[in-house]
Design a protein around this nucleic acid. Structure first.
Length: 296
DNA sequence: CAAGTGCCTTTATC
DNA sequence: AGATAAAGGCACT
């Protein structure tokens, strides 16, 4: 059975949701577009979804989980006006208006971004699909096979060799060790939602394979920390391009010269983003990221 | 089609 | 603290 969900009250001319931007922008890696339908799986919901102007149509998940996953309750007019600080971010907002941060499952999100280090998006998709096919439960939607993301136990018990065989490379041991820590309850991911950004971040950084960037991605995309401002290569470029005047000159020169970001440079760029864009800095980051990646 | 470059970085080491 | 190198292998040109 199909479910229909009005994204915004009908009387609004501008439903602020853009399914394509949301699923294309590189925050989640397990969606595929076939025709007008996106096929994917979140939690145990093997799902297909499409958008027709003001409404989305989907199958395989209930209203509540769809609203939750796509953050359809976020107050977009407020968020967008909040982060709309200058003409640069405005360009991104105009172009991708309706792009939403997804509310991903913390465990899958954590492993996704541990895998994402030093990889491009198609390769990341490949790794996560390999892991899911090899270790996750198979589910079906029509004639499609979709695989639930494997549990911490499954990955903790997987041999290093079998993880490497999913094209994880050196990430295999990080995934394995992190899975074991989560299984041993050395860290309870869900509990981080209730903690502050700083405290949750500190705890994530204890995990092998998790540095500042990965931690910020997990905080933003799965742990309710919309102020998190992950800084990758593209965001670093964007800040140097648009906001250099707002940063100390020597710092800008140092970062420009640096190939990769030092820990302290990362911290300065990220806290600039948080201070400049405010409590929804993560949304600004995602708009900037997608804009920079697609318009150059 | 081969070869080179880059990849939503982290870790280890100096 | 900052710089540097190493770490799979895939995708794209």
């Amino acid at each position: 059975m199909n479910a229909k969900l009005s994204v915004m009250p009908k009387e609004l001319h501008e439903p602020i949701f853009d399914l394509n931007s949301t699923l294309c922008c590189g925050q989640a890696f397990r969606w595929d577009k076939q025709g007008q339908w996106w096929f994917g799986i979140f939690g145990k919901n093997a799902c297909k979804i499409r958008q027709k102007s003001g409404s989305i149509e989907f199958e395989g998940a209930d209203d509540r989980s769809v609203k939750n996953y796509f953050r359809l309750s976020d107050d977009m007019p407020k968020i967008l006006s909040d982060i709309n600080k200058d003409k640069h971010i405005k360009n991104a907002i105009v172009k991708f208006k309706g792009l939403r941060i997804l509310r991903q499952e913390p465990w899958e999100c954590l492993i996704s971004y541990i895998c994402a280090t030093y990889k491009n998006i198609p390769a990341i998709k490949n790794m996560l699909n390999n892991l899911s096919q090899k270790f996750g439960e198979e589910t079906h939607l029509e004639n499609h096979s979709l695989y639930v993301f494997p549990s911490p136990t499954k990955l903790a018990n997987a041999s290093l060799h079998s993880l490497e065989a999913c094209s994880l490379g050196y990430r295999a041991k990080y995934v394995s060790e992190t899975a074991k820590k989560i299984c041993d309850a050395a860290l309870d991911l869900e509990s981080l939602k209730k903690k502050s950004y700083d405290e949750a971040r500190r705890e994530l950084l204890e995990l092998p394979g998790v540095g500042p960037k990965v931690a910020d991605c997990v905080l933003l995309f799965s742990l309710e920390k919309l102020e998190a401002f992950p800084v990758d290569l593209w965001i670093k470029r964007a800040i140097l391009k648009y906001y250099a005047a707002q940063l100390p000159r020597p710092f800008v020169e140092r970062v420009t010269a640096q190939g990769s970001l030092s820990n302290t440079s990362y911290g300065k760029l990220s806290s600039f983003g948080r201070q400049y864009f405010g409590k929804y800095a993560g949304y600004a980051q995602e708009y900037l990221y997608h804009y920079e990646r697609t318009s150059t």
